[in-house]
Amino acid sequence: MSVPPPFGLPPFALAMGMALSDSDGEAPVVTMQFGPHSEGRPGFLHGGAIGGLLEMAGFAALATHLGQRGIEQRMKPINISIEYLRAGLPHPLHAMGQVLRAGRRVANVRVEAWQTDRATPIASCWMNFHLSAPKS
């Protein structure tokens, strides 16, 4: 099933060279290009840039999850915990989130990021979101 993402990437994501692509899963895949804008120690992805992509994929997964269910809620991140598993090489980085639970006030999301091999993630995170009624 191809998911039309209802989630629009914000200015920061576009400035970082992130783009959404459909996936056959529940959530869109977010991909970030490598370049000087995302480089940390020479030749490697910056940990913050990796974190920024994970977080964006978390937002995208939750927005898609709520959108598919016709739920309109404001999403605010409460916290994020990132594990860095492997060095980020100078290649595109992909990330996809999974909503473990979305209740009335809180949503719990997991995200993994990978480069060449989906089964070999280079980073992962959990995020908790606060959900509230949209501002009228």
Partner: peptide
């Protein structure tokens, strides 16, 4: 900076750059 703003057109800085600032 305007191009570092996050979701919601609120003018609020995205949390991505804050992750990077903390990392550095």
């Amino acid at each position: 900076r305007e191009d570092l703003v996050g979701a919601g057109n609120s003018g609020v800085l995205a949390s991505g750059p804050i992750i990077s600032l903390f990392d550095n």
